[in-house]
Design a protein around this nucleic acid. Structure first.
Length: 589
RNA sequence: GGGCCCGUGGUGUAGCGGCCUAACAUGCCAGCCUGUCACGCUGGAGACCGGGGGUUCGAAUCCCCUCGGGCCCGCCA
């Protein structure tokens, strides 16, 4: 039997057609005489009717069939009689009357039911991923992922981009995340690294004159996992020559607008996308990837408590810190226990403490541990500044600016979530621009590239760069949405001497520069065009489009939080012979 | 490296010191049923409560250790 149609595509237009369909028994309803089978394939379900009078042999097969048996059905599409249709099914107006059923393969009872959407233990889902993928949720996500990828390719192709693959066995570099290493058999004691991103290769493609490049690039980072992080993931990697930030941002904005409109049920909150300078993002939202779907902005109270007797504030202000707050609507009624949990949370985020002030019903007085240290005037100013309303709670952090922003930024997300301020049907894309080029690492006493060492500084003069490295901006742009970082890119450095100066600022010695990045510097000397690019996370894009909170829900075969593949059981030990060939010896312990 | 949460028939839950010889739903098995669509009805099998140790007259229930899973901090852009 040869398949002629897909289950989910049969409609009234197919009535009277002879069809051969194949798929899985999604559900079987045995009426003693008639048997109904909902047959499922990738495209959906259709009801098969098996009548013992009409087709006794087919009925005998249907009688033995169980959930997830694989069947081939030869039959005729018939219109369902009035009242017998099923509006919940795309194919619900018709049904297939079976003439013949062939059992292609039976199935043992499954470890979990795939015909309903119940929570199943993650380890069971991952071990039987091929079954989980039969369920609607994952199947839908994988199909949407495909449509997003297709949209990316179509869009970029239409914009004259060339898809180019770059190698996965490359050179390890010290910057950034921990590398996955691959031992070399041919070169004892030496290793390849798997790419964290194809950054250098794509810039070299620009030097090569390939002009407009993109790739759906597999990237690898050996770091601990999170809900939105896997060791192996996919980036949409883009680079274009003779372009600046506006070219890249317009291109990507057009793409993501199209993706959102064609592949998501969520709608764009900002069209065009919001734009926010980095400094403002930090000041107002305490994050460089702010969730713009709700307010609860940070309020600076430093001026209002200037000269306060309250030591927690006074001492911080004296040492150049600031006092900022967010307003949690209705939280004045929080229990002591809940308030303590907030304080604990704030400390975990790096604050020395958290001052919580509940606003009284009068809208003028506050209660809470620190209330007694504040004068009525100070309270008045704080309430006026923050616009706190009766029964709201002020969450106040006094610390150095970076800590204040970070802690309040995270608490803000909690407040937004717990207070139901977030509209899940929206996508709030925002471009964050104007990042600093460098970031000072006090622990290591050196500068660190905020994005990557190839981002162009706003100032291209080497002297100016070296004079005031900390205050120089990068020509960088990040795309954030709903509190996730979707991607980031920059105009690149294309002049060898500027690139060299940045490496030097980052504390690399002449030798290190030559050894690690000599090929880049040399390439820039052979006619490198100005260029700019970006990389966005495919999985995060899909997560946003299908409103999933976890990256595993948008990957076919993800790893668990301990970076293990529970289906294939990787990683696993290898044979002594394999180790030997690779010139490796395991450390005892 | 650290913090928090979860772990009961195949799956999802209830039970949280004696009423548990562990309940419910679903799945599974058998029987009945010719228009259902989460079909229905009847009957049945199936967990000793992740594992180990302890407290107690008595533990699924309390404590400790351990294993497995998740979320977070660090890490990562």
């Amino acid at each position: 039997m040869k398949r002629t149609h897909r289950c989910g595509e049969l409609r009234a237009a197919n009535v009277d057609q002879a069809v051969n369909i194949m798929g899985w028994v999604h559900r079987r309803r045995d009426h003693g005489g008639l048997i109904f089978i909902d047959l499922r394939d990738r495209t959906g379900l259709v009801q098969v009717v098996v009548d013992p009078q009409h087709a006794p042999a087919a009925h005998a097969v249907a009688n033995e069939a169980r959930a997830e048996f694989v069947l081939a059905v030869r039959g005729r599409v018939l219109m369902r009689e009035a009242g017998r249709d099923n509006p919940n099914l795309a194919t619900g107006q018709v049904e297939v009357h079976a003439d013949e059923i062939e059992l292609l393969n039976p199935a043992r009872p499954l470890p979990f039911e795939v015909n309903r959407d119940v929570d199943v233990d993650e380890s069971v889902r991952l071990k039987y991923r091929y079954l989980d993928l039969r369920r609607d949720r994952l199947k839908r996500n994988i199909l949407v992922r495909h449509r997003i990828v297709k949209t990316m390719r179509d869009y970029l192709d239409a914009h004259d981009f060339t898809e180019i693959e770059t190698p996965n066995l490359i050179k390890s570099t010290p910057e950034g995340a921990r590398d996955y290493l691959v031992p070399s058999r041919i070169h004892p004691g030496e290793f390849y690294a798997l790419p964290q991103s194809p950054q250098q290769m794509k810039q070299l493609l620009m030097v090569a004159g390939l002009d407009r490049y993109y790739q759906l690039a597999r990237c690898f980072r050996d770091e601990d996992l999170r809900a939105e992080r896997q060791p192996e993931f996919t980036q949409l990697d883009i680079e274009m020559s003779f372009a600046d930030e506006s070219d890249v941002m317009e291109l990507v904005e057009g793409l993501y607008t199209r993706i959102a409109e064609e592949c998501s049920e969520r709608t764009l909150l900002f069209k065009p996308f919001q734009r926010l300078p980095y400094e403002e993002a930090i000041r107002r939202f305490g994050s460089d990837k702010p969730d713009m779907r709700f307010g609860v902005e940070l309020v600076d109270l430093s001026e209002d408590v200037l000269g306060t007797q309250f030591n927690a504030f006074a001492s911080v202000l004296a040492s150049g810190g600031q006092v900022k707050a967010i307003v949690a609507p209705g939280w004045a009624a929080l229990s002591r226990k809940e308030t303590d949990a907030l304080i604990e949370q704030a400390k975990q985020f790096g604050a020395k403490g958290l001052v919580t002030l509940g606003v009284g019903d009068d809208g003028e007085t506050v209660h809470g541990g620190a209330a007694k240290f504040l004068t009525p005037d100070e309270v008045k100013r704080i309430i006026a500044r923050s616009q706190a309303r009766p029964s709201d709670m002020l969450l106040i952090v006094a610390d150095q600016p970076a800590t204040v922003a970070d802690v309040l930024g995270r608490l803000r997300l909690d407040v937004g979530r717990r207070c139901g301020l977030i509209d899940d049907s929206k996508l709030a894309f925002v471009w964050v621009t104007g990042f600093p080029l460098l970031e000072w690492l006090p622990d290591e006493g050196r500068w660190h590239a905020m994005h990557n060492p190839f981002s162009a500084p706003v100032v291209m003069e080497v002297e100016a760069l070296k004079a005031e490295p900390g205050s120089i901006g990068a020509r960088q742009y990040d795309l954030a949405c709903n509190g996730y970082e979707v991607g980031g890119g920059s105009v690149r450095i294309h002049k060898a001497e500027v690139q060299k100066a940045v490496f030097e600022l980052l504390g690399l010695s002449e030798d290190e520069i030559r050894e690690q990045f000599g090929h880049m510097l040399e390439a820039f000397e052979y006619g490198a065009p100005p260029h700019a690019g970006i990389a966005t996370g495919l999985e995060r894009t899909v997560m946003l489009m299908v409103d999933e909170p976890n990256i595993r829900e948008v990957m076919a075969f993800p790893k668990n939080q301990a970076a293990m593949d529970l289906l294939m059981q990787a990683p696993s030990p290898v044979s002594p012979k394999q180790l030997d060939e690779l010139h490796l010896q395991l450390k005892p312990d």
